[in-house]
Design a binder for these strands. Structure first.
Lengths: 206, 206, 206, 206
DNA sequence: CATGAATGAGTCTTCATTCAT
DNA sequence: AATGAATGAAGACTCATTCAT
């Protein structure tokens, strides 16, 4: 009959816009990966970011925009880590190996990103190719050049550089997704050498 | 002034239960793959199966049960096609090759199954490992025996049969999913030989 | 901590679509007139109509559609009552008088309709001319013919039949709205003769 | 990726309170009349008045207070214009005519005021009689005295001065509202003589 | 058994209001 | 005093599920 105890009202804090945005994105990565896009309540994200729900909407127009921004956010991280990795050496094979290790290391430390990739496909089918593949396509040219360089140096057994790269892409994607979904507990990082070895020389003795 | 909710009344038709069940499952595969689990309206599935909505619920307790039954339905198909394939020859390598071809052929002709696998993960995270991986685990013993046989015959370059198989699994899974999601138009069937070749002998010259 | 007593679940009742529609419209007239369009909660309308909220949406796609249907509903009533009234006599003046009496009687017995007219203007400004005036325009031809007939019989003091009619329209509209909004308690029905008298012969002695 | 919420920071300007108040009211008249009370965003009013949103709330406690202040603002204008008009002559009939002309002229030049009157009723039903009618009531005594004076001079055909005045009020209100809502393009000013003529002598020949 | 009208819990989004700066 | 970032209450609408016919 009387006023319910209204609970401790959140202390208002003002922060720079960029920082707020980051905090919300980080909270969103965690919540979307944990609950899934649909099940995630925007209130949960707000709570986790320690802001009001209205603040989330101040920075991201809709839940959909928030999700896609979240995914873009992590994809940019992956991209920059992979790009950083290839600078380690001049040898194309070493560059490729470094890229593969960086890719696996990324998903090793942030396996929940896999969930976001899957969520996007599940919920935004109509948007066409998922952002993961959009990013992969954009980066492909650089990687193909490396493989082609190997071919030009006569170091490739197979004639088709494109097919070799495509296989590597599929292998890595499959490994990463499969590792997350099958709840495989072996670390991706540890498997890198093994994967590269088979990719390079196959499983059969000659 | 408004849409009066009056459609043509469906005629009541009685059919054998098993047939009804199949018809509903087929409708569900199509609708779930096309719309996604969330977006799929149970009414659409009922409409497509040409039954009343209540009938859908007579056969499947909830939407969730219907979806998982649908996925099981297609997984059983994949399983039986792959199992049929390996009987073609006595040679373990040939069996593996035949299995790979059957796997790729299955997803070549029913690429939308990929959507169901993704949907399951997206919407039923809490249920643990997706059915795809449950099936894969169940089948794994047979495949591992084949690889091990190769190893015993000294035909394997790598010492670890398990790692070799795991790599093949990831490669195939990645290929199939990636092919669907990146809207790659090359047929999976055509790529089988190429994929097997690299899997067997790697990309590098020795 | 335990299940709240869920309250008496509404007994499901199936009724003919047309009857349901009418019941919802009647409830909507009452609620919209009482609360106003914005303040009206669709749940209130559903409660008053003794149906679930979903049922309201089954019959009317949106709150907006429901409101406009409600207004149309009462306008149709006004229209048919006014049209019925003019059949009473052959004399054009008597017809006009009967129409005026019917119009006033309508708003006398359903003064809340005024609120709906006002609500429409307040909330759907962009839709152009309110339905009240759309209806008035549609009916105008018939009334103008009557006034013109009077003019042709030399019974009109003023030369402009259109202006005379327009004045009558404005007078009636103003009377009805003003009566409702100023909370004038005199009945519109009783004022009919007085209004007609002044309309016909003015206030000044000659 | 998204709209960063960073606009150009408004320069702080200090102005006399009364001037600020006027500027906000003027902005509010325009925005409320254009968008309607509900649809009007307080931010829009602040923007139009070129102040921060907080400043609006410094001058007017709530949106409701702001709206009612706005309406009072324009009602005061109407009142003073009508009062000024009646001083033109000593003859009661001429005074009434001047008042009618002033009333119509007011709404001719500020037709959007009609919207505010309607908005008030639509949104503040519970407050009782709208301000328009409160003002009308307050002024009524003076006008009734004029009509009574006519009656005392034997110049009234009808016995009831109150009824005559009430009819004039309703007629004017109806004319003004109807003119705005039906999107009638004839000017109110031009119609004044015609309206007065019929009000005075009716439409019928004797 | 089969049907589809009826139900209501669940959630995104808006925007008036507050208050730290 | 002035500002606008932050807040959260409120409500339309959807759709899985039920059940009277």
């Amino acid at each position: 009959m009387t006023d319910e105890p209204t609970g401790p009202v959140r202390k208002r804090v003002r922060k720079p816009a960029e920082q707020r945005r980051e905090e919300i994105l980080d909270a969103a990565v965690a919540v979307f990966a944990d609950q899934g896009y649909r099940a995630a309540d925007c209130q949960d994200i707000a709570d986790r970011a320690e802001v009001g729900k209205g603040t989330v909407y101040r920075y991201f127009e809709t839940k959909e925009v928030l999700f896609l921004s979240t995914l873009t956010h992590v994809m940019e991280q992956l991209k920059s880590e992979a790009e950083a990795a290839v600078t380690v050496s001049g040898d194309p094979l070493e560059k490729i190996r470094a890229g593969v290790r960086a890719y696996l290391a990324f998903f090793d430390s942030q396996p929940e990103v896999v969930e976001l990739v899957i969520q996007e496909r599940a919920e935004f089918r109509e948007r066409g190719s998922p952002l993961y593949f959009v990013y992969a396509d954009n980066e492909r040219g650089g990687w193909l050049a490396l493989v082609q360089e190997l071919a030009d140096q006569g170091r490739l057994r197979v004639g088709n550089a494109d097919a070799a790269l495509r296989m590597l892409e599929d292998l890595l994607f499959g490994t990463v997704v499969s590792s997350r979904l099958s709840m495989d507990r072996r670390g991706l990082r540890e498997r890198a050498s093994e994967i590269l070895d088979i990719f390079e020389y196959g499983v059969l003795a000659r």
